[in-house]
Structures are given as C-alpha cells and as structure tokens.
Nucleic acid binder design. Structure first.
Length: 297
DNA sequence: GCGTCCAGGTCTACC
DNA sequence: GGTAGACCTGGACGC
C-alpha cells in the first residue's frame, strides 16, 4: 500500500534524513545511495515497515501487505512527525538569510532534524548517546529493538514501548543491552512512563518556558545539560547548544584554528541567531555531511 | 590473549 | 554554585 504526502517547498528529504545520527539507529535504516529511509512503526500489537522516499515534492511511503485505515493514518502521522513536515522554518530561514556563511542552509533545505515518532524513544536513545562511543550507542539501540521490539511483517522490529521496557529487570539492561551504569536509569524511566507518572510526550506541546522544561527533563536520571538540550531540539526548541565533545572538537577545527575553544566562545559565536542558535550551530557542524556522506558521523 | 589506559556525560558527595 | 571522583564500556595500545 502507498501513502503520498505533499511536502513544503523548502523541505529537503536528503538533508532531513541525514540531519543527525538517528537515521543509522534501528528501527530506522537509511540507504544513502538510493535515498530510502526505512522505519518500523508500531501500532498496538502489530508493527509495519514503512519505506519512505521523496520525489517531486511528495513523500511516498510504501507499506507492504495489507494495513487498516487506522494503521495507514498512524503511519502518515508518524512520518509527518519524524520528518518535521509541519514545522515552519520561515523565521529561521529569514534570520540566517542575512548571514553569508549560513545562506546555504535555506538553499539546501537543511534545519529539519529527524526525530522518532515518540519523545520516549528520543529520550531513551539520547541517554544511550551519553558518555560513550557511537558504536556503543548503536549496540544499545540494536539490543533494545532486537530483544523487545514488536516484529513487523518483514521480520524487522519496532522500538519497544515503555511498557515493554518496564517489564524487564535491571539486569537485562546491564547484561543484554550493555548499558552499564545507565541500566537503572533506563529501567526507572520506563517504569515512570509506563505507569503514567511521567508524561514525556507532553513535552512536545508544553507551554512551560524552555528553562523550566529543561529543568523537568534533567529530573530524569541520566539526563544532564547535553542530553536535555539535545531533547529540546527534538521537541522544537533551539535555545540550547547541546555541546558535547564532538561539537567542541568540530568547532575548534572550523572556527578556532584547531585549538580548543571555551564554551563561552562557542556561545558567543552563535548568539546572533537568538532562540534559533542551537539549530544554527547544528547546521554549521553538519554542513559537510552531504559531501562526505554518512561515514563522517 | 591479557592488562592498562583513555574518552565520553552525568550523578553524588563535598566544599 | 563549583568541583572531584566514580560510574561503565569498548577501543587502542603495549607486552
């Protein structure tokens, strides 16, 4: 079955698909030769593999086999959410159009950051990016999906729900997922979300100030400044820079003659972009990703 | 193959 | 509020 979604004029499928490392983590899969993004989407007790492509200002989603109308609506809704098709980039593009070093962002349709269908998945994956190599993050995500995700018709697996994760003992996260000291954090998070005590999906529409929302995010064990600011970007707030060692090193190469720069200097550099500064920084850091392909991540 | 060192971000205890 | 040390894994390196 096929779903077609018209896309905004300023949307770039390629730039969005490779906007950050999420497209390489299951249940995403990216084929950057044929520019196909595959994603397993869970619905109640079933899961569907959606193959997403883009031609002539239209996103095309292919879902093998039969799917109910409700399932197709969910797949469309999730795809719009993941690809940020409803985000209005106008204000950001107008702001950066005055800056010669950033005009490429609008020309190339960059700035939409790929995200998961749920904040819960983005939160779990963000915790799995902290204090470790990308290969370990990949391993943790693969273990979670492989062990707990619901199987789709082509035997791929979806990302586990909070309930799926809450049902596992801490030992599972330590021994199977290899999440180390993060094991109790993942277990506690899943239990809090599954019980309804913590509603992380509400962060998408929260009317709290960004600093209040950041404080709330940091109350989740394993979420510090970097993780909270990364999550804020994924819920559409770009005031935080989410500085980690990779960003600091890249800034040093691009703008500081290869020497380490103080965080204050990095903050100063992007301050001209106001509440869009976090997005401006990320576009700046990833400008060469289209040239270098995904291997540069 | 084994042991050691290091990078990575957050938490906790302490000042 | 700031800081030091612990947390845990995988990779690099030397033997």
């Amino acid at each position: 079955m096929e779903i077609l979604i018209p896309t905004p004029k300023d949307f770039s499928f390629k730039r969005t698909a490779i906007s950050h490392g999420w497209s390489e983590l299951p249940p995403f899969e990216i084929d950057s030769k044929n520019w196909t993004l595959t994603r397993v989407i869970a619905l109640d007790d079933r899961a569907f593999t959606a193959t997403i492509t883009h031609t002539r200002r239209t996103v095309k989603i292919n879902v093998p086999g039969k799917a109910s109308r409700r399932a197709l609506e969910k797949i469309e809704r999730d795809t719009r959410h993941m690809l940020r098709l409803d985000d209005d980039m106008g204000e950001f593009y107008r702001l950066i159009s005055n800056d010669a070093d950033f005009q490429w962002v609008e020309t190339e349709g960059a700035g939409r950051l790929l995200r998961s269908p749920t904040v819960f998945e983005d939160l779990v994956k963000t915790i799995c990016t902290t204090n470790c190599s990308w290969s370990l993050t990949d391993k943790m995500a693969r273990s979670l999906v492989g062990a707990l995700g619901r199987e789709s018709n082509d035997r791929r697996r979806a990302f586990p729900t909070a309930e799926d994760m809450a049902s596992q003992p801490e030992k599972f996260y330590r021994d199977e997922v290899r999440s180390g000291y993060r094991a109790p954090y993942l277990k506690e998070l899943a239990e809090r979300v599954a019980s309804g005590e913590l509603d992380v999906e509400s962060w998408l529409t929260s009317d709290k100030s960004t600093s209040e929302l950041k404080r709330e995010m940091k109350r989740v064990k394993g979420v510090g400044d970097y993780a909270a600011e990364n999550l804020l970007k994924l819920v559409g707030r770009y005031e935080g820079l989410a500085l980690d060692s990779w960003v600091r090193a890249k800034f040093a190469r691009l703008h500081n003659g290869g020497r380490a720069a103080k965080d204050k200097k990095i903050e100063q550099y992007y301050s001209r972009f106001g509440h869009w500064r976090g997005l401006a920084l990320w576009c700046d850091m990833t400008r060469d990703w289209m040239k270098d392909g995904l291997s540069s991540f």
